[in-house]
Design a protein around this nucleic acid. Sequence first.
DNA 1: TCTATTTGACCATG
DNA 2: CATGGTCAAATAGA
Length: 314
Amino acid sequence: MAYVSDRDGAMREVVQAYELIKSHQPHFQFCDKEQGLETVNLAQSLLNEALRALHLALSVLNHETSTAGGGAEGSSRSHMLHLFSRSYAAGDVGAIMSQQRRSKRRRSNEETSQVILTDAPHDDGYIWRKYGEKKINGTHFTRNYFRCSYKYDRGCQATKQIQQQSSNDLPIFQVTYNSEHTCNCTTAANKYIKIDVPRPHLSSCNPNGMISPMADAMIDQNQGVLPPLVEVSTVFFDSTSCQETSHLSRPYTLSLDHVGNHLTSTDDGAGDYNCGTIDAYIDLAQMVLPQEPLEDNPFSDAELDLLCNSLMYN
DNA sequence: TCTATTTGACCATG
DNA sequence: CATGGTCAAATAGA
C-alpha cells in the first residue's frame, strides 16, 4: 500500500533528521569560548526545539501508521504513547485530533482538561463510573464517558472521556480528563505521580492481568536522568507470567544494560520482548524532551540507539 | 435488593 | 439542524 510506504519513508526521514541534529548537539556545549554565550544558548535552544518538534512528528507518524494500518496490516505499530496538555492538543498535535471535531458544548472548566494517549485508560488510580457512551463522527470507536464515583458522596466533579484510537493488539486510547479530583480517593499511587528514581520501574500487575498503577509511573523529566529521545516508562508483564511469578509484586529496576543484553523482540509484535523467562512488553511514554542538556545521563548513546531502533522498527 | 452499566432521550452549542 | 455531553429509566449481574 503506497500510503503505508510513504509514511514509513517519512518516518525514516524524521528519524534521520533527529539523529543528525542529535549528533551535532554536543558541539554546542564545548564552543562557548570561541563564540558568544548568547549565540550558543540560542543555537542550543533551537536545537532542542527542533528535536522536540521532530519527536512530536515522529509520534504522530507512529500513531497514524498504526491507525491507518489497522489490525494485521499495521506493520509498524506505534510504541510511543505521549502525554500532552490541552495547549498541545490545540496546536502541534492537532493532527492527532483531526478526526475528532471539537466539542460544540463548551465546558465551563475546559481549561483544566488534560489529554493523554495511553493503552491503559482505566488504570489511573481513581474510581470511575460510566455514565454514557456515544458514537462520535469520524471515529471508528464509541466514546465512553465517566465521572468520579464520589461525585455525589464528596461532590467531586472530575470526569473523563475515553476514546479508542486504534484496534491493534495493543489498542491506544485517548483519555480526556476534565476537572480536578476533590475527593482524595486514589486507590494507590496515581499513574501520573512523578517518582524520584534514577531508573524506570517495571510495573506490576494484579491477578486479573490489569496493570497496577503503583509502578506505572511517569518519570520526572526534571530529575535529569532520562535519555533525550525516549524513556522506558513502563513494562507490563504478561498476566499469566504475573500470576506465576510472585516476586513481580515488588518494584523492579530496569537498566538499559538489561534491555540490551536480555530483552529480545518476539515475533508477534514490535513491542513484545522476552525478558529472561518473563514475557513483557515495553512502552515508550512521555515524549517531552528535557529543557536542559542532560548532564548525568545514565544511558550511553549505544544503549539508547539499541532501544530506539528495536522499538521503532519492529 | 443493591449497584453498576447500557442506551435512548434531552439539551446546549455553534 | 447537526453534534456532542449528560441524564435517567431500563437492564444486568452479584
